[in-house]
Amino acid sequence: MSSENTVSINGQPHALPDDPRVSLLDMLRHHLGLTGTKKGCDHGQCGACTVLVNGVRINSCLTLAVMHDGDEVTTIEGLGTAENPSALQRAFVERDAYQCGYCTPGQICSATAMLDEIAAGWPSDASDSLDGPMEVSTEEIRERMSGNICRCGAYANIVDAIRDVAGEPA
């Protein structure tokens, strides 16, 4: 892999790793010290490693870093800081939408992209129809957030936090 190949992480270009086995998740955590993205399973089963690639949420453990030449990756560190948190980050604190906090960056990245998916009219299993405007209903949120496991069991509060940011459904 030549060093011209780069991926943009939170707006900063980074050379892709030499070892093609490095997952995007491990590149973030081990090579760049961006440990906000968590490893819960390394197998696409928990959602703790969710990041946005070109605005779309993915499990960063399920993709190799070298596949992201030229991509724009946003991690939890890119969504907000303790001094300037995003609306979802603030809502998670207010609603106690976490306990141990380990699934939390993944939940927040996932929710950020999920709200865009609803706005774009992507249907889910909870949707009444395959096209047409989608509501940010509780059932839609539950369905669309079911790829992010929270073993602490903060789901009820996670839904409340997301609804606070999305506004009540029509």
Binding site: G36, T75, P85, G101, T104, P105, I108
Partner: peptide
């Protein structure tokens, strides 16, 4: 410690 958890720090 909430803001540290939600910002991944």
């Amino acid at each position: 410690e909430g803001l540290l958890k939600v910002t991944g720090t």
